[in-house]
Every structure is written in C-alpha cells, then in structure tokens.
Design a protein around this nucleic acid. Structure first.
Length: 390
RNA sequence: GGGCAGGUUCCGGAGUGGCCAAACGGGGCAGACUGUAAAUCUGCUGGCUUAUGCCUUCAGUGGUUCGAAUCCACUCCUGCCCA
C-alpha cells in the first residue's frame, strides 16, 4: 500500500490528527512506526468504547506497524482526570495488576498479538527517585496543566483538584518519551495529555509523536461517554445474548454513531431501523464472539422479544428452595440465583405491584400472592429477565 | 495560622426544633404505546413478614430537649480570602 493510501485509510474515522503533514512524512519514511495506545486498567473489563482506538491500532498493525500497548499500572493509580469533575478513587497496585491481566486478554480480541508489544509504565516509574520526579515536574508549568478544561471547570466551581492529579498528563507524556512513540492514539478527550507527550519528546530531542484523536463513543444512554462507572457500557466479554440485547436497546441516533465508530461504515439508506440494528448487533457479537453466536443471539432475540415467546426461549433455570412461596420471595431468590442481583424485597414488591412480574404468562400484581412453583413454568421478572422453573 | 462559606438520600439541591424517609429537578426502574428504539403519558425510586406500624439515614462524636437534618460543644473534610 502506498503512503498516500495508508494515509487515507488511517485517517478515516479520526476526529483530529496533529498533524497530518507529520503523519504523511512518517508514513513515507517506509519504516514500521511505533504506535502507542495507553490504557489504564481502572476496571477489569474493556468495553466498546475502548475498542474504537484499539481498532485503529489494529489498522496500523495490519499495515505492518508496531503496536505498543501501554498498560498504565502507575497512571491508573492516579486516575486520568480527563473529563472528570471529581478526583477518582485511588486503586491499589494489586487491584490494578489484576485488572491489567483481563484487560490484555480482552484487548487481544481486537489487536494482533504478534504485532503488539505490551509495556507496563511501572517499568520506568517504579524506579524513579524523588529527584527524578522533581526534575520531570520542572519541565511544565502549573498554568499549562491547569489550562485544561476539566481542571478549569473544577476551579470555577470551587471543587478540589488534588496535586497528584496534575501529574497525570506529565506521566502519560513521559510514557511517549520512554517508548519513543511515533504516533499516539486516544479519544478526543486525550488531546491535552497527548500534546504534553509531544512537548516532552521535543525537549528530549525526539521527533514528536503524531496525535491521532478518535471520536468518543457514547454509551447506552446515548449522551454520555461510555464508561463502566456510568453503567452505560457494553463489555467485550459480555455473553452474546446480553451483548445483542444491549445493542438492540440503543436509540436510532446512537445506532448511527455506533455504525460509524464501531463498524466504520454508514447505515444503508433504505434499511429499516430495526433491521439495521439487528445487523449492527450481529456484527458486534460476531466480532467479539463468533458468527454462530451472532446467529444464535439473533434467533433468540426474535423468538423472545419480537415473537414474545418466552416458552421457547433460552432462560436460566431456577429451582426454588420451597415449591410453594410468595411472589416476592420467589422473585428475590430468582434474581439472586440466576442473575447475581441482590434485590431488596421492597424493590421486588414494587416490580410486582407495578405489573412487571408474571408467572406462567399471567401478571401477578398482588404482593401476597402465593406461587406454586412445583409446576413448571416461566417466571418473568422484568423487561429483560425471566427464569424457567421446573 | 486567621477570617468566611459549606458537608443532606445515586447526582444536583431545598429543608434552620415536631406536619421529615426528607420538597423540586436530573438519573434510574416499572406500566401503557412500540421496533426490548425514540418521543409521550402514568406510577415508583432507604430497609423491614405493607404496616393510619417499626427500623436505619441528613460528615463524626457527645450534649440540650418530651422531640434534632434543624439548637450547642468538640472533631474530621472541602472551597474562598488573608498570612
């Protein structure tokens, strides 16, 4: 592939590249570029949002470049302040390392393992002395660090900014120096951090990295950035059925975004939104599981939701402790046993009185109703959860 | 170190002695309607064997009071200004 063609492919889907000229120059040098992507294992799972940049890194790999996946075991302990209105809770190094393990595993669902170098940034931060830290800090000014929007906002709102948070961009920037990155990938909210990397590289006499910013993927709610802590994420490790269902529940507007950011293409103009959404869901389940899983998930979905046929759908089996119990106890046990959810009885009572719970196809709205669970049947709990008894 | 303003349920934020499990908004959940979409409408949103009932909660501890989120004392935490 010619440099111009590579350029065309690689810049597709990017929100911003700083700068295109530099990237063209690097590409035409003909050597494999060192492409950096940093991830902070603050949670054990990777979600769709992460895959946008992972996918871009994969493109680089497919063109013969080297992917350097930085596991921010040290930076994760600080927590990236980007887009944050509050200090993140601090994780211990052990927690971070545990997360890092599953992170890598999941990242390789997208990346080419053979062309990926995994580096922990603790490798260089761990051994730094306080003198080194001071020296590093003296290269930037507080004003520069505070310029960034998230900090300024907190300043305006009189919310605390802890001194260690200011270290974050400096550390991320130093990562770029240590691995001599040619390109750094990240979401648009990473602009500031990535630019600090360029500055530090220049000071160290390195050719500055190209910053490639990818759009931020909105989560299930359709407005906020996908993030596990906001509860609007779809994890790459989720079961095919759950993944499929979550994708189906997004709004049409969000579906269009996901098409572009996750599949890299537009929705077919003539497609019915429902059909388009099923296609999206299939494509994603196939990517993170398999074509067979995707077909199966689609079939189950149609059976269960379009056909409203709970009878023949795949449901977790539930064996009650006692065959004859009241609805509330039954539902609480089912939530707990089949979905690992500890619902309070009050919570379940609400579901019952509001008409969400059904036994053998009948709504049970009386919280005192007794169910004879010695008979086989389906106990529906809420919109997406139901269990099979007997 | 000094002065001032604050710390309320998931979030924002009202409440300044009983009518407070605590207004209102957001978010979330459920029902109706649907395409498990959006929009809309309705309801719910601390816990408990649902109870004009009890229990836990308004930063913490201790007090005053028949009664405290509300008053007092001390402590912890945050911001702003001054040094």
């Amino acid at each position: 592939m010619s440099p111009a063609e590579s350029m065309d492919l690689l810049s597709r889907g990017c929100a911003e590249i700083i700068s295109r000229r530099e990237l063209e120059k690097k590409l035409s040098a003909g050597r494999p570029l060192r492409v950096k992507l940093g991830v902070d294992p603050t949670a054990p799972d990777i979600h769709f949002g992460h895959t946008v940049s992972l996918q871009k890194l994969r493109q680089f790999q497919d063109l013969g470049h080297e992917g350097i996946l930085i596991i921010g075991d040290f930076t994760a302990m600080i927590g990236d302040p980007s887009g944050r209105s509050a200090t993140r809770p601090q994780l211990t190094h052990d927690e971070v390392l545990a997360n890092a393990r599953t992170y890598q595993e999941q990242a390789f669902k997208v990346l080419d393992k053979a062309k990926t170098k995994v580096v922990f940034n603790g490798e260089w931060f761990r051994d730094m002395t306080f003198t080194d830290v001071i020296k590093l800090n003296s290269r930037v000014t507080l004003q520069q660090m505070l310029q960034r929007e998230d900090f300024r906002e907190r300043l305006d709102k009189a919310q605390p900014i802890r001194a260690h948070e200011v270290q974050y961009p400096i550390m991320q920037g130093w990562d770029s120096v240590m691995i001599r990155a040619d390109v750094e990938l990240g979401g648009t909210d990473q602009l500031f951090n990535i630019m600090v990397g360029r500055d530090l590289q220049k000071e160290e006499g390195q050719e500055p990295q190209v910053a490639m910013m990818l759009p931020i993927l909105e989560g299930l709610d359709g407005t906020q950035k996908m993030s596990k802590s906001l509860g609007n994420a779809v994890g790459v490790n989720e079961a095919p059925g759950a993944m499929f269902g979550k994708v189906m529940s997004v709004s049409d507007a969000l579906m269009a975004r996901w098409y572009v950011l996750l599949l890299g293409r537009e929705i077919a103009r003539e497609a019915h939104p429902m059909a388009a959404k099923k296609e999206l869901a299939c494509a994603l389940v196939e990517r993170f599981h398999s074509a067979g899983d995707a077909a199966h998930a689609l079939e189950e979905f149609e059976k269960r939701f379009s056909g409203r046929d709970l009878e023949n759908a795949e449901l977790p089996a539930f064996t009650p402790a006692v065959p004859l119990i009241d609805v509330i106890t039954a539902a609480v046990e089912a939530y707990n046993a089949c979905f690992g959810q500890a619902k309070s009885r009050s919570d379940v009572r609400r579901l019952v009185t509001q008409g969400s719970v059904q036994w053998r196809g009948e709504k049970v709205t009386d919280p005192k109703a007794m169910l004879d669970l010695s008979r086989p049947g389906i106990l529906r709990l809420d919109k997406t959860r139901a269990v099979r008894v007997g």
